[in-house]
Protein backbone atom coordinates (compact mmCIF):
# COMPACT_ATOMS: atom_id res chain seq x y z
CA UNK A 1 0.00 0.00 0.00
CA UNK A 2 1.42 3.42 -0.96
CA UNK A 3 2.04 6.14 1.60
CA UNK A 4 -0.04 9.36 1.48
CA UNK A 5 3.00 11.26 0.21
CA UNK A 6 3.51 8.74 -2.59
CA UNK A 7 -0.18 9.01 -3.44
CA UNK A 8 0.00 12.79 -3.57
CA UNK A 9 3.04 12.59 -5.87
CA UNK A 10 1.25 10.01 -8.00
CA UNK A 11 -1.86 12.16 -8.38
CA UNK A 12 0.21 15.28 -9.01
CA UNK A 13 1.99 13.46 -11.84
CA UNK A 14 -1.36 12.31 -13.26
CA UNK A 15 -2.76 15.83 -13.10
CA UNK A 16 0.33 17.30 -14.76
CA UNK A 17 0.08 14.70 -17.53
CA UNK A 18 -3.58 15.70 -18.11
CA UNK A 19 -2.62 19.38 -18.08
CA UNK A 20 0.12 18.76 -20.64
CA UNK A 21 -2.31 16.82 -22.84
CA UNK A 22 -4.86 19.66 -22.60
CA UNK A 23 -2.24 22.26 -23.50
CA UNK A 24 -1.09 20.29 -26.56
CA UNK A 25 -4.70 19.71 -27.64
CA UNK A 26 -5.53 23.41 -27.25
CA UNK A 27 -2.52 24.43 -29.32
CA UNK A 28 -3.70 22.06 -32.09
CA UNK A 29 -6.97 24.03 -32.30
CA UNK A 30 -5.68 27.56 -31.75
CA UNK A 31 -8.47 29.37 -33.63
CA UNK A 32 -11.05 27.50 -31.56
CA UNK A 33 -9.19 28.48 -28.38
CA UNK A 34 -9.18 32.15 -29.38
CA UNK A 35 -12.90 32.08 -30.28
CA UNK A 36 -13.90 30.46 -26.97
CA UNK A 37 -11.73 32.89 -25.02
CA UNK A 38 -13.56 35.71 -26.80
CA UNK A 39 -16.91 34.09 -25.97
CA UNK A 40 -16.05 34.00 -22.25
CA UNK A 41 -14.73 37.56 -22.43
CA UNK A 42 -17.93 38.83 -24.06
CA UNK A 43 -20.15 37.18 -21.44
CA UNK A 44 -18.05 38.71 -18.67
CA UNK A 45 -18.52 42.04 -20.43
CA UNK A 46 -22.30 41.50 -20.47
CA UNK A 47 -22.34 41.06 -16.67
CA UNK A 48 -20.29 44.21 -16.13
CA UNK A 49 -22.39 46.19 -18.61
CA UNK A 50 -25.57 45.32 -16.70
CA UNK A 51 -24.03 46.73 -13.51
CA UNK A 52 -22.82 49.85 -15.36
CA UNK A 53 -26.29 50.50 -16.83
CA UNK A 54 -28.18 49.92 -13.58
CA UNK A 55 -25.84 52.27 -11.68
CA UNK A 56 -26.37 54.98 -14.31
CA UNK A 57 -29.84 55.29 -12.81
CA UNK A 58 -29.29 54.51 -9.12
CA UNK A 59 -26.62 55.03 -6.49
CA UNK A 60 -27.10 51.84 -4.54
CA UNK A 61 -28.39 48.28 -4.80
CA UNK A 62 -29.38 47.01 -1.35
CA UNK A 63 -26.79 49.34 0.19
CA UNK A 64 -23.97 48.32 -2.17
CA UNK A 65 -22.35 51.01 -4.33
CA UNK A 66 -21.17 50.41 -7.93
CA UNK A 67 -17.59 49.41 -7.08
CA UNK A 68 -18.65 47.22 -4.17
CA UNK A 69 -21.09 45.51 -6.53
CA UNK A 70 -18.26 45.11 -9.05
CA UNK A 71 -16.26 43.20 -6.40
CA UNK A 72 -19.19 40.76 -6.05
CA UNK A 73 -19.65 40.39 -9.83
CA UNK A 74 -15.88 40.03 -10.36
CA UNK A 75 -15.69 37.34 -7.67
CA UNK A 76 -18.62 35.50 -9.25
CA UNK A 77 -16.83 35.64 -12.62
CA UNK A 78 -13.57 34.42 -11.05
CA UNK A 79 -15.19 31.37 -9.44
CA UNK A 80 -17.07 30.67 -12.67
CA UNK A 81 -13.88 30.89 -14.77
CA UNK A 82 -12.05 28.50 -12.45
CA UNK A 83 -14.96 26.07 -12.56
CA UNK A 84 -15.01 26.24 -16.36
CA UNK A 85 -11.25 25.81 -16.58
CA UNK A 86 -10.90 22.88 -14.18
CA UNK A 87 -14.13 20.92 -14.05
CA UNK A 88 -17.02 21.92 -16.35
CA UNK A 89 -16.16 19.83 -19.42
CA UNK A 90 -15.01 16.87 -17.31
CA UNK A 91 -18.22 16.68 -15.33
CA UNK A 92 -20.50 17.07 -18.35
CA UNK A 93 -18.54 14.42 -20.20
CA UNK A 94 -19.02 12.15 -17.19
CA UNK A 95 -22.79 12.32 -17.72
CA UNK A 96 -22.36 11.33 -21.37
CA UNK A 97 -19.84 8.60 -20.53
CA UNK A 98 -22.10 6.96 -17.96
CA UNK A 99 -24.93 6.82 -20.51
CA UNK A 100 -22.70 5.48 -23.30
CA UNK A 101 -20.70 3.04 -21.16
CA UNK A 102 -17.39 4.85 -21.77
CA UNK A 103 -17.22 5.36 -18.03
CA UNK A 104 -15.53 1.93 -17.92
CA UNK A 105 -12.41 3.65 -19.21
CA UNK A 106 -12.16 5.74 -16.01
CA UNK A 107 -12.92 2.82 -13.72
CA UNK A 108 -9.98 0.93 -15.20
CA UNK A 109 -7.49 3.78 -14.80
CA UNK A 110 -4.75 3.75 -12.13
CA UNK A 111 -6.37 6.10 -9.62
CA UNK A 112 -9.48 7.20 -7.80
CA UNK A 113 -12.36 7.32 -10.36
CA UNK A 114 -13.60 10.69 -9.08
CA UNK A 115 -10.12 12.19 -9.46
CA UNK A 116 -9.70 10.66 -12.91
CA UNK A 117 -13.01 11.97 -14.29
CA UNK A 118 -12.62 15.41 -12.66
CA UNK A 119 -9.14 16.19 -13.94
CA UNK A 120 -8.99 14.58 -17.38
CA UNK A 121 -9.17 17.87 -19.29
CA UNK A 122 -8.38 21.48 -18.55
CA UNK A 123 -10.09 24.23 -20.56
CA UNK A 124 -7.46 26.88 -21.04
CA UNK A 125 -9.93 29.45 -22.39
CA UNK A 126 -11.60 29.42 -18.97
CA UNK A 127 -8.29 30.13 -17.30
CA UNK A 128 -7.31 32.84 -19.73
CA UNK A 129 -10.13 35.04 -18.43
CA UNK A 130 -9.64 34.18 -14.73
CA UNK A 131 -6.80 36.75 -14.33
CA UNK A 132 -9.07 39.25 -16.05
CA UNK A 133 -11.84 38.58 -13.53
CA UNK A 134 -9.27 39.01 -10.76
CA UNK A 135 -8.14 42.28 -12.36
CA UNK A 136 -11.78 43.50 -12.31
CA UNK A 137 -11.91 42.77 -8.55
CA UNK A 138 -8.52 44.46 -7.98
CA UNK A 139 -9.56 47.54 -9.96
CA UNK A 140 -12.85 47.84 -8.05
CA UNK A 141 -10.98 47.56 -4.72
CA UNK A 142 -8.54 50.23 -5.95
CA UNK A 143 -11.44 52.53 -6.95
CA UNK A 144 -12.87 52.12 -3.45
CA UNK A 145 -9.54 53.35 -2.06
CA UNK A 146 -9.03 50.14 -0.07
CA UNK A 147 -5.73 48.43 0.60
CA UNK A 148 -6.50 44.89 1.79
CA UNK A 149 -3.90 43.32 4.07
CA UNK A 150 -2.01 40.15 3.15
CA UNK A 151 -4.24 38.28 5.61
CA UNK A 152 -7.39 39.56 3.84
CA UNK A 153 -6.03 38.56 0.44
CA UNK A 154 -5.05 35.09 1.68
CA UNK A 155 -8.54 34.68 3.17
CA UNK A 156 -10.06 35.87 -0.12
CA UNK A 157 -8.07 33.21 -2.02
CA UNK A 158 -9.17 30.55 0.47
CA UNK A 159 -12.82 31.60 0.17
CA UNK A 160 -12.68 31.59 -3.64
CA UNK A 161 -11.32 28.03 -3.30
CA UNK A 162 -14.26 27.17 -1.02
CA UNK A 163 -16.63 28.71 -3.58
CA UNK A 164 -15.05 26.60 -6.32
CA UNK A 165 -15.48 23.50 -4.13
CA UNK A 166 -19.17 24.32 -3.62
CA UNK A 167 -19.78 24.82 -7.35
CA UNK A 168 -17.86 21.62 -8.14
CA UNK A 169 -19.86 19.69 -5.55
CA UNK A 170 -23.17 21.07 -6.83
CA UNK A 171 -22.37 20.10 -10.41
CA UNK A 172 -21.06 16.68 -9.39
CA UNK A 173 -24.21 16.08 -7.37
CA UNK A 174 -26.48 17.00 -10.28
CA UNK A 175 -24.49 15.08 -12.89
CA UNK A 176 -24.26 12.03 -10.62
CA UNK A 177 -28.03 11.75 -10.96
CA UNK A 178 -27.37 10.17 -14.41
CA UNK A 179 -26.54 6.96 -12.54
CA UNK A 180 -30.24 6.84 -11.69
CA UNK A 181 -32.00 9.01 -14.31
CA UNK A 182 -29.98 8.28 -17.48
CA UNK A 183 -30.22 11.92 -18.56
CA UNK A 184 -29.01 15.28 -17.27
CA UNK A 185 -30.43 17.34 -20.14
CA UNK A 186 -31.44 20.91 -19.36
CA UNK A 187 -29.29 21.06 -16.26
CA UNK A 188 -26.83 23.46 -17.85
CA UNK A 189 -29.52 26.11 -18.31
CA UNK A 190 -30.77 25.58 -14.78
CA UNK A 191 -27.28 25.85 -13.35
CA UNK A 192 -26.63 29.19 -15.11
CA UNK A 193 -30.06 30.43 -14.04
CA UNK A 194 -29.40 29.72 -10.37
CA UNK A 195 -25.84 31.01 -10.62
CA UNK A 196 -27.16 34.45 -11.66
CA UNK A 197 -28.07 34.98 -8.01
CA UNK A 198 -24.39 34.81 -7.04
CA UNK A 199 -24.06 38.31 -8.53
CA UNK A 200 -26.49 39.77 -6.01
CA UNK A 201 -25.71 41.15 -2.55
CA UNK A 202 -27.19 39.17 0.33
CA UNK A 203 -29.16 42.22 1.50
CA UNK A 204 -31.18 42.29 -1.77
CA UNK A 205 -32.88 38.97 -0.98
CA UNK A 206 -35.85 38.69 1.32
CA UNK A 207 -38.51 36.14 2.17
CA UNK A 208 -38.62 32.91 0.16
CA UNK A 209 -35.79 34.01 -2.14
CA UNK A 210 -33.51 34.48 0.88
CA UNK A 211 -34.46 31.04 2.24
CA UNK A 212 -33.67 29.38 -1.09
CA UNK A 213 -30.60 31.26 -2.31
CA UNK A 214 -28.97 32.18 0.99
CA UNK A 215 -29.77 29.26 3.29
CA UNK A 216 -30.86 26.22 1.23
CA UNK A 217 -28.45 26.74 -1.70
CA UNK A 218 -25.09 28.40 -0.94
CA UNK A 219 -25.27 30.58 -4.08
CA UNK A 220 -24.99 33.96 -2.40
CA UNK A 221 -22.46 32.96 0.23
CA UNK A 222 -19.96 31.85 -2.47
CA UNK A 223 -19.46 35.43 -3.66
CA UNK A 224 -20.62 37.59 -0.79
CA UNK A 225 -18.22 36.19 1.83
CA UNK A 226 -15.04 36.68 -0.27
CA UNK A 227 -16.24 40.12 -1.38
CA UNK A 228 -17.03 41.21 2.20
CA UNK A 229 -13.61 39.95 3.26
CA UNK A 230 -11.88 42.33 0.86
CA UNK A 231 -14.22 45.19 1.73
CA UNK A 232 -14.65 44.81 5.48
CA UNK A 233 -12.09 42.25 6.69
CA UNK A 234 -12.48 38.65 7.81
CA UNK A 235 -15.71 37.98 9.73
CA UNK A 236 -15.99 34.83 11.84
CA UNK A 237 -19.60 33.73 11.26
CA UNK A 238 -19.63 34.10 7.45
CA UNK A 239 -16.25 32.36 7.31
CA UNK A 240 -17.53 29.37 9.27
CA UNK A 241 -20.65 29.34 7.11
CA UNK A 242 -18.71 29.26 3.83
CA UNK A 243 -16.13 26.68 4.94
CA UNK A 244 -18.87 24.56 6.52
CA UNK A 245 -21.03 24.77 3.36
CA UNK A 246 -18.06 23.72 1.21
CA UNK A 247 -17.33 20.71 3.46
CA UNK A 248 -21.01 19.73 3.64
CA UNK A 249 -21.69 19.97 -0.11
CA UNK A 250 -18.47 18.12 -0.98
CA UNK A 251 -19.37 15.33 1.43
CA UNK A 252 -22.90 15.01 0.00
CA UNK A 253 -21.67 15.08 -3.61
CA UNK A 254 -18.91 12.51 -3.07
CA UNK A 255 -21.30 10.22 -1.18
CA UNK A 256 -23.88 10.40 -3.99
CA UNK A 257 -21.17 9.82 -6.62
CA UNK A 258 -19.87 6.73 -4.78
CA UNK A 259 -23.41 5.38 -4.42
CA UNK A 260 -23.89 5.98 -8.13
CA UNK A 261 -20.75 4.04 -9.04
CA UNK A 262 -22.15 1.04 -7.21
CA UNK A 263 -25.22 1.20 -9.45
CA UNK A 264 -23.18 1.63 -12.62
CA UNK A 265 -23.68 -1.29 -15.00
CA UNK A 266 -20.56 -1.63 -17.08
CA UNK A 267 -20.87 -1.59 -20.88
CA UNK A 268 -18.33 -4.38 -21.27
CA UNK A 269 -19.43 -7.94 -21.86
Amino acid sequence: MSSPRMSLAHYTRLWLASARYSLVRTMMFRADFIMWSLVELFWMGVNLLLIAVVYRHTDSIAGWGPWEMTVIVGTSMLVQRLLMGFFWTNLFEMGRNVRSGHFDFFMAQPGNPLFMISTRKIDLDGFLNAPLALAVVAYAVHRLGLQPSGWQMAAYALFVGCGLAIHYATLLLIISLVFWLQSAKGIEGGYFGVNEFSRLPREALRGVAAVIFVYALPVIVVTNVPARTLLHGVELVPTLWLVGAAALWLTIAITVFNRGIRRYASASS
Binding site: A62, G190, G193, E196, F197, L200, A204
Partner: peptide, 16 residues
Protein backbone atom coordinates in the same frame (compact mmCIF):
# COMPACT_ATOMS: atom_id res chain seq x y z
CA UNK B 1 -35.92 27.81 -15.66
CA UNK B 2 -36.77 31.14 -17.28
CA UNK B 3 -38.88 31.89 -14.23
CA UNK B 4 -35.70 31.52 -12.13
CA UNK B 5 -34.11 34.20 -14.34
CA UNK B 6 -37.24 36.32 -13.90
CA UNK B 7 -36.87 36.02 -10.11
CA UNK B 8 -33.29 37.33 -10.45
CA UNK B 9 -34.56 40.25 -12.58
CA UNK B 10 -37.28 41.07 -10.02
CA UNK B 11 -34.81 41.09 -7.13
CA UNK B 12 -32.14 43.12 -8.96
CA UNK B 13 -34.51 45.77 -10.32
CA UNK B 14 -36.56 45.81 -7.10
CA UNK B 15 -33.36 46.68 -5.22
CA UNK B 16 -32.35 49.26 -7.87
Amino acid sequence: FSLVHLAFVFILWGAA
